[in-house]
């Protein structure tokens, strides 16, 4: 076994082993339209993930009255479940709005997309930065 730089045991990769090497991650398991399990959410109503030119593009729709607020498109970084896996099960993205920014970090668990949302305000409105988590199901599978 070759020794690689690591800061925890699970980062050690067996180069001469039976397990497949990691590297290129496929995004199919993440793609599609994901709708909030809470129809009365005041946070994110739905997210849409598509693949374009080898990248994963995220569209988010925030809860607003009378219609959801389209946050626009941002690229998402995708992650597998371990260093040997080639299937994406998580993603992260950064949404910048000027007066605030939002880190989104999401993973799939038992078919549900769990999105952790980190809201940071930069407009001196006095609002506190806050964390929330919401759950989404896929509509187009």
């Amino acid at each position: 076994m070759q020794t690689l730089s690591s800061m925890k045991t699970e980062e050690e990769l067996e180069v001469e082993g039976s397990r497949r090497r990691g590297g290129t991650i496929t995004s199919e398991s993440l793609l599609g339209t994901w709708v909030n399990t809470n129809s009365a959410t005041r946070g994110i109503v739905k997210v849409v993930l598509t693949a374009s030119d080898g990248k994963v593009v995220l569209k988010v729709f925030g809860s607003c009255d009378p219609d959801p607020y389209d946050w626009g498109e941002v690229n998402a970084s995708i992650f597998a479940s371990d260093i040997h896996s080639n299937e994406a099960t998580a993603w992260s993205a950064f949404c910048e709005f000027g007066f605030m920014d939002i880190h989104l970090q999401a993973h799939i668990r038992q078919g549900v997309l769990i999105i952790a949302k980190f809201d940071r305000f930069k407009d001196e409105s006095g609002r506190v930065n806050y964390f929330s988590k919401e759950f989404f199901y896929r509509t187009d599978t």
Binding site: L4, E11, G22, G23, T24, I25, F79, D82, Q105, H107
Partner: peptide, 19 residues
């Protein structure tokens, strides 16, 4: 704690998430 690990050393390791 959620960890998003990204590798830049060409080791062939997949970037991965753990919780």
């Amino acid at each position: 704690v959620g960890s998003f690990s990204t590798y830049t050393d060409g080791s062939g390791r997949s970037n991965y998430f753990s919780r």
